[in-house]
Amino acid sequence: MTYIIQTNNLTKLYQGNAVVSNVNMHVKKGEIYGLLGPNGSGKTTIMRMIMNLLKPSSGEILVLGEKVTSTSYEMLKRMGSIIEYPVFYDKLTARENLQLHCEYMGYYNTDAINSVLNMVQLKDFEGKAVKDFSLGMKQRLGVARAIITKPEILILDEPINGLDPLGIKEFRNLFQMLSKDYGMTLLLSSHILGEIEQIADTIAVIKDGQLIEEVLMDDIRLQNTEYIELKTNDVKKAAYEIHDKLNISNFKVLDDTTIRIYDLNIPQGEISKTLVLNNILVESINKKEHTLEDYFFKIINGGRINV
Rank of each mutant, 00 (worst) to 15 (best):
N39A: 07
P56K: 11
E66N: 14
T45N: 06
L35I: 08
R48A: 06
G40N: 09
E66A: 13
K55M: 12
G59E: 10
N39E: 04
G42N: 06
K67V: 10
V63T: 14
R48T: 04
I50A: 12
L53H: 06
M51E: 09
G42M: 10
P56D: 12
I50K: 06
L36E: 02
R48D: 05
V63G: 08
I61D: 15
S41K: 05
K55Y: 15
K43P: 01
G42K: 05
N39T: 11
G40T: 04
V68F: 00
T69V: 07
G59I: 10
N52A: 15
V68G: 00
E60D: 15
L36C: 04
G40K: 04
M47N: 01
L35N: 01
G59C: 07
I61A: 10
T69F: 00
S57I: 07
I61S: 09
S58I: 00
S57N: 12
K55D: 01
E66T: 15
G34F: 06
S41L: 08
S57A: 11
P56E: 12
K55G: 01
L53W: 01
L54N: 08
I50R: 09
T45C: 04
G37P: 02
I46S: 09
S58K: 15
S41I: 05
M49R: 11
E60L: 10
I50H: 08
M47K: 04
E66D: 13
G59T: 11
E60C: 14
G34V: 04
K55Q: 15
K43N: 09
L54D: 11
G37E: 02
L35V: 00
M49C: 05
S57M: 07
V68I: 15
G40I: 06
N39G: 07
T44F: 02
M49V: 02
N52R: 09
V63N: 01
